[in-house]
Design a protein around this nucleic acid. Structure first.
Lengths: 353, 353
DNA sequence: GCCAGACTTGTTATCGATAACATTCATGCT
DNA sequence: AGCATGAATGTTATCGATAACAAGTCTGGC
């Protein structure tokens, strides 16, 4: 600030230049300025810089606080973003979908302009329908994370549910399973539907019949999946494998199997989707499809930064990140005994962790 | 902006006033201004307002992205903060403990001044040692969330581990348990130590001997607790109840009991600490100590807002929030059979959810 | 009829950094 | 010598909102 200028006998302008540009300031002057800056403990005021630059060096993350911030994924995504932003001047600002009323495009625009947010990351399910219209009003780089939006002119980065579910289904088929159940997630979200479709198509491609009685809703909830699995497994001739649309439901299935005296994976193979942090430590360790959540954040942040730097017309990014099949201890070839039903008691063995 | 002023034939000042103050502007004028504001799609520029007000209407959340953002609690705390901030103009900005180098007090001050952060919320373990010094340099309201700092002149809000662990221990004693194990969390953190101390003291107060062989380290990890419980439970005369310092470890204990053919809670009572979202849905539903994580955020945000509004010298807040005992299905009076050991197979019953 | 006091609106200066333009000074060329 | 060139620095204006102060208007009371 002016103190530095006075201290060094220079003008504020020169100080400003010395602190930013490498050209057009003599080495001796820069030296002096830097020294004084250190000594007086000066630091640029971002707000003022932002006002002049019409730019706040901020990326907004729009998220449902009520429904999603407590979620495991949210932190992962933010962490991925931060990795990209660490080297830059950019920061992350959180916007609450509920309290800000992002349903109203006008308010949304207001807020972003008010805060001079450089770009927006929309996180979480259920946003896809309303954001197209908002974007039209919003001359702002924007990317939706976690939902694939189809062919719309909005950028998104999502996880490739289809290849992930296909890989898992093939894994179960390769093990020899032919009687496979599938537990669905939310009906509203596209993710679960894609996983289910991939499951069905992969079975069909391998000429394995799809058993409609073993496809049912679990809403991504442990408890609902538990109930469903109890039903399936306590009837005669139950499935030999169950593929749940997320890990939490897989936990529920495993628990149901146990309370019926079935061993996992000997009597029933169970597969999930997500690879939650706890899934590797679960007993038995869960076979699942790992979602690259941090990478979602990384890609989103990098995209916005790119767009902001080129400041040309924003290229639309439609990216699906590959999943990774994590084969652990909850899946195995089907045992002969399982066909007989669930009532027969078995000897219990300790499981590999 | 000026457009509004021109449109309404008023001065920018009057427009500014009409949009903020309820006094000192005539109703007719305000009407006109608001109408024009709507029509022209105007919105105040926060950056400019901030520059003038020397104040950014932001609370910084300092958190270890690497270690804590993915954690379940983080979202809860942020959610709690947002509840308080929803009615205000304040927003949440995230600062990464790692990439910002908050170890260096100078850099920390710089950053906060640069961003004009109004107050700081420090989240996560392990901050207590270094922040005192930083605070001295930092003329900024600050509160540490989740760690009790003892008698230092830094505000904190934390969970009352001691009363929580005492309540749980008394619950187990009330049920009739006398052979109770305890699984510790991280050695470094104070939380686990406090829970353990409360456990020991409560036993002592009830003249129940503390069994050192049934107190062991679990590091808050499911798997480690699983191993430890396997060891304890496969020996003769095992404990009839195990109190784990967090829920994840309780899951591990329940799993260990099951793989040894023990029923929970009939043969072994298991208690946790945290009340994770999944714990109520776990089968059996977990008896645990609920931590008011969202309240931590709420209290922290409210404290900072208070301090910022009074702008007098900040009163130091040392608050411990009460926990709540959640009695569910994983604890019960000790069965007679448990004393005999773990090898005898039992009939399996379905459990209450 | 005139003025105190309340009410409403306008003017100027400011927050701090910096873009755009102006100025100074030294060097090298004809 | 005289002037063009360019490097280094200084001046002014600006981003947009608003605090502080100024001024104008209206009311009622003497």
């Amino acid at each position: 600030m002016d103190d530095i200028a006075r201290d060094t006998g220079l003008s504020a302008m020169t100080v400003s230049r010395a602190l930013r540009e490498s050209q057009s300031v003599s080495a001796a002057t820069r030296e002096k300025v830097l020294e004084a800056t250190q000594r007086l403990g000066y630091h640029v005021d971002f707000i003022a810089r932002q006002l002049r630059a019409k730019h706040a060096f901020q990326l907004g993350v729009v998220v449902s606080f009520r429904g999603y911030v407590g979620h495991y994924y949210f932190g992962q995504i933010v962490q991925g973003m931060q990795q990209v932003l660490a080297g830059t001047h950019y920061h992350i600002s959180l916007f609450d979908l509920e309290s800000e009323d992002f349903n109203d495009p006008l308010k949304c625009v207001n807020l972003c302009h008010q805060r001079r947010v450089g770009g927006l990351v929309i996180v979480g399910p259920g946003q896809k329908e309303r954001f197209p219209k908002i974007l039209a009003d919003l001359a702002m780089p924007l990317i939706v994370v976690g939902s694939s939006l189809g062919r719309q002119a909005i950028s998104y980065v999502a996880v490739d549910n289809i290849s992930g579910a296909r890989a898992m289904t093939e894994h179960l088929l390769d093990l020899g399973h032919r009687r496979i159940g599938f537990i669905q997630g939310w009906r509203e979200g596209r993710d679960s539907a894609q996983r289910e479709q991939a499951f069905r198509k992969t079975l069909a491609a391998h000429k394995v019949p799809v058993m409609e009685q073993w496809i049912g809703p679990g809403e991504y909830e442990t408890r609902k999946a538990h109930h469903l699995a109890m039903e399936w497994l306590s009837r005669p001739a139950p499935p030999t494998a169950i593929f749940a649309a997320n890990d939490l439901m897989a936990y529920g299935v495993i628990d149901a199997a146990r309370s019926l005296g079935l061993r996992v994976p000997e009597d029933l193979s169970v597969a999930g989707f997500d690879d939650l942090g706890s899934s590797a430590d679960f007993v038995p360790a869960l076979t699942t499809v790992a979602q690259p959540m941090a990478s979602l954040g990384t890609v989103a942040a990098r995209y916005l930064l790119d767009v902001l730097q080129t400041n040309g017309p924003a290229a639309v990014l439609h990216q699906k990140l590959p999943t990774q099949l994590q084969v652990r201890s909850s899946t195995a070839p089907p045992g002969k005994s399982a066909v007989a039903g669930a009532s027969k008691p078995k000897r219990r063995t300790s499981r590999r962790a």
